[in-house]
C-alpha cells in the first residue's frame, strides 16, 4: 500500500515536472515526423478523405495539432501571464500613484485644521481676557470637529470594504422622503426648498435589496452637496423613476456647475475641485457615495454644465430586487 502511494506520488511529480511536460508536448510532433519519413520509404500514398494524402503527412499534421493542443494545455497560463505582465506593471504603477496622491491630499487635509488648533492653543495660553480665551476655544473646537469628521469618513471608507453589507428590501421612495426631510432640517438648509418627484403610476416602486442606512447616506450626501453648491435662489430637485430593471434617482440642481476638467476626478478620495475650496466637508463624500452604490451593484453618473442653462445632475441606478 505504502509503495503504491509513493508510486503515485512519483508519477504525479513526474507529470508535473517541467521537462516531462516539454517532452510530452513535443512527442506527437516528433512521432509524426518519424512516421512521415518511415511511410514515404515503405508505403504507397493512399487516398484519405476527398483528396490524396500521404499517411505520413497525415501523421505529421496530427502530430503538429496534438503538440499545439498539449502546449496550450501545459503552457497556456504561462504565456498569458507573460503577455499580461505588461498590463500588471501599468496597473501597479497607477495604484502606486493614486496611493501617493491620496497621502498628499490627506496631508493637506490634516495640515489646515491642525494649524488652526495650534494657533488656538497659543492664543489660549497667551491671553488672559475671557472673551479672547472663549474665541480661541471655539476655534479649537471647530478645528477639532473638522479633524473628527475627516477621521469618521476615512473610517467609513475603510469599513465599507470590511464589514458585510446588510441585504434587506429597501423602500426607496420612503427613504428619499426621510432623507429630504433630514437634509432640510439642517440649519443651513432651513430656507431651502427641495422638490421631490416620485412617479407612482401605474405601480409602486419595487424594493431594492441593500443596506438602508448606507443607501440613505448616498442620497444624503448628494442632496447635501446640491444644497452646498447652490445659492438660495437656485432649485434643487430629487426625482425617482423605475424602468423595470433598476430604480433611477436623480439629484439635480441649477447651481454653478462643475468644470468639465474636474468631472472625472470628483469621485476620487479627498479630491477638492475649485468649487469645493473653502467649503466645509471631508472631501470623501462622493468617494463614499460611489463606493456604496457600486457595492449595491448600481451605477453613479454625473452630468454638469457651467454655461447657460447651467447645473448638475447626479444619477444613481440601483438594480431592483429580483423575485
Amino acid at each position: 500500500m505504502k509503495q503504491l502511494v509513493s508510486l503515485r506520488d512519483f508519477l504525479i511529480k513526474l507529470f508535473n515536472a517541467r521537462l516531462t511536460r516539454i517532452i510530452v508536448t513535443a512527442l506527437p510532433l516528433f512521432l509524426g515526423l518519424l512516421a512521415t519519413i518511415y511511410v514515404q520509404n515503405f508505403l504507397e500514398p493512399v487516398p484519405i478523405l476527398a483528396f490524396r494524402m500521404d499517411i505520413g503527412i497525415a501523421a505529421l499534421l496530427f502530430g503538429i495539432f496534438l503538440t499545439l493542443l498539449l502546449g496550450a494545455y501545459f503552457f497556456g497560463d504561462e504565456s498569458r501571464g507573460w503577455f499580461a505582465r505588461g498590463d500588471m506593471d501599468e496597473v501597479r504603477r497607477e495604484m502606486e500613484e493614486s496611493r501617493r496622491q491620496f497621502i498628499r491630499r490627506l496631508d493637506h487635509e490634516i495640515k489646515n485644521p491642525l494649524t488652526g488648533l495650534q494657533a488656538a492653543l497659543v492664543n489660549m495660553s497667551e491671553t488672559s481676557a475671557d472673551a479672547d480665551r472663549h474665541r480661541a476655544s471655539e476655534n479649537a473646537r471647530h478645528a477639532l470637529d473638522r479633524l473628527k469628521r475627516l477621521l469618521a469618513d476615512l473610517r467609513k471608507l475603510a469599513e465599507l470594504e470590511e464589514r458585510p453589507l446588510e441585504r434587506l428590501p429597501v423602500d426607496i421612495p420612503a427613504l428619499l422622503e426621510e432623507v429630504t426631510e433630514a437634509v432640510q432640517s439642517l440649519p443651513a438648509a432651513q430656507e431651502r426648498k427641495i422638490n421631490l418627484l416620485i412617479s407612482r403610476v401605474p405601480w409602486p416602486f419595487p424594493p431594492v435589496t441593500g443596506d438602508r442606512d448606507l443607501l440613505s447616506l448616498v442620497f444624503y450626501n448628494l442632496l447635501e452637496n446640491a444644497l452646498k453648491f447652490t445659492a438660495s435662489a437656485d432649485s434643487v430637485e430629487v426625482r425617482a423613476l423605475e424602468d423595470g430593471r433598476a430604480i433611477v434617482v436623480e439629484v439635480a440642481d441649477n447651481g454653478m456647475g462643475i468644470p468639465p476638467a474636474e468631472l472625472p476626478k470628483i469621485f476620487e478620495e479627498l479630491y477638492r475641485g475649485v468649487n469645493a475650496r473653502g467649503t466645509e466637508g471631508s472631501g470623501l463624500g462622493l468617494a463614499l457615495t460611489r463606493r456604496i452604490v457600486i457595492l449595491h451593484d448600481g451605477a453613479l453618473e454625473v452630468r454638469s454644465r457651467q454655461d447657460d442653462p447651467r447645473g448638475t445632475v447626479f444619477t444613481v441606478r440601483l438594480p431592483v430586487a429580483r423575485k
Binding site: 467609513k156 440613505s216 447616506l217
Partner: peptide
C-alpha cells in the same frame, strides 16, 4: 450599534 455617525442618523434610529 452602527459604529459611525450618520448625517441623517437620528432618523435612522427612529426607523
Amino acid at each position: 450599534v452602527w459604529g459611525w455617525e450618520y448625517p441623517a442618523g437620528t432618523r435612522t434610529v427612529d426607523t
